[in-house]
Design a protein around this nucleic acid. Structure first.
Lengths: 208, 208
DNA sequence: ACCTGTGAATAGTTTCACAGCT
DNA sequence: AGCTGTGAAACTATTCACAGGT
């Protein structure tokens, strides 16, 4: 996962930059400087300029044009076409994600849901199809789903991930506190557990 | 946020290491090698060894003792005493976090909740006190709350963050898709938005 | 035989400083 | 005057390679 355009850390900042620019545009700003951007992203102005270097064309002297820059970023980061996403686990966290990510669809689309509790599947009425977790591999393959958001119980997360991989998934974002084995096939696994975030914060605070 | 013991990226991996070790211990493993750990964390064996360097005492030759290592980590990362945490926003995501983080309390304790909808506060029955968001500053100060998890509507997140900071909060984890201004006082602000995570994943996948 | 710990080498990232544009 | 773009310098992180333990 190296040398292929944008370096890893930069890519992460740029993803946040996309959301930030959307925010700024929504609030009516159409110019923005590298130091303003840095203030939001927690980086130095020069770092912001370096990050954006690949997405501007030599025009120096004045601040960035928010909407022009956003377009360039979306194009340059290949965010134009929607990724097909599934939700694994339709408990509270699953529903919360649906609520947060379901509507807006900026570069993604939720196309299926999975849960191991059959009665849970029956009682929900969503605008995408729902399946039991036993069918993960088949459905992922048939619907050509690229990314999965896992919110299931830590105990079964590794098993579910294995099924997703079997079905040919390309990326997994793991919200549970279980840690998944990496590098299976060339699936990109992103740990995104609130528990780690809090642990990390606890450590930062106790440095004092 | 530099030179104070553990370097930034390492600290992040170590937080995940803590959860991982707990997992491994729970599943009965009492020894583990640097390559096994690396397989979970997505890093090389030598990187793992470097990361753990500060938490072992020279004993070379055989694999790590899971529980001994965990104890050392918790001690070394200052995770022994609980951080006092509040939830800002008691909608779906807030409840999901409560469900995920409320019980186990490994280094933290949820001590208060805030929401701007008064009727929401009335209809909930939780085992910590709830307050309207107008009282954030006062309550944070009085209860000496150190960390906040914000899950509120993007439009009001910056305002709520400002109140938290006024109350003397030390760390904020922002789950909303709004990007907060950084470096206000010396509060540590951690962006943790699922929307950025998905955007980032979309980019990684489209590199191909 | 297989493991960790660690200095040295390599690779990657951020900051500096300034030329050049508006 | 204030901004970006960018090479060069400074800093940080990762990998290599092997000494030394079990």
């Amino acid at each position: 996962m190296k040398k292929n355009g944008v370096p890893e850390l930069r890519a992460e900042r740029l993803s946040r930059m996309v959301l930030l620019l959307q925010d700024l545009i929504r609030s009516g700003k159409d110019q923005v400087t590298s130091s303003e951007l840095g203030r939001y992203l927690g980086t130095s102005p020069s770092s912001v300029r370096k990050d954006l270097g690949a997405f501007t064309e030599g025009r120096t002297g004045s601040a960035y044009h928010t909407s022009l820059l956003l377009d360039r970023l979306k194009l340059g980061l290949n965010l134009e076409k929607d990724t097909r996403v599934c939700l694994v686990g339709l408990d509270l966290m699953g529903m919360a994600l649906l609520n947060l990510l379901g509507l807006k669809g900026l570069g993604w689309k939720i196309v299926a849901g999975f849960d191991s509790r059959l009665n849970r599947l029956e009682q929900l009425d969503l605008d995408f199809p729902l399946y039991p977790t036993t069918e993960i591999a088949v459905v992922v393959a048939r619907m050509e789903i690229q990314t999965a958001l896992i919110t299931s119980d830590p105990h079964e997360v590794q098993k579910l991930a294995d099924r997703l991989i079997l079905g040919g998934i390309r990326g997994i974002i793991n919200f549970s506190s279980a840690i998944l084995r990496q590098n299976r096939g060339n699936v990109i696994i992103q740990d995104f557990s609130p528990a780690s975030a809090l642990t990390h914060m606890g450590h930062l605070l106790n440095l004092n």
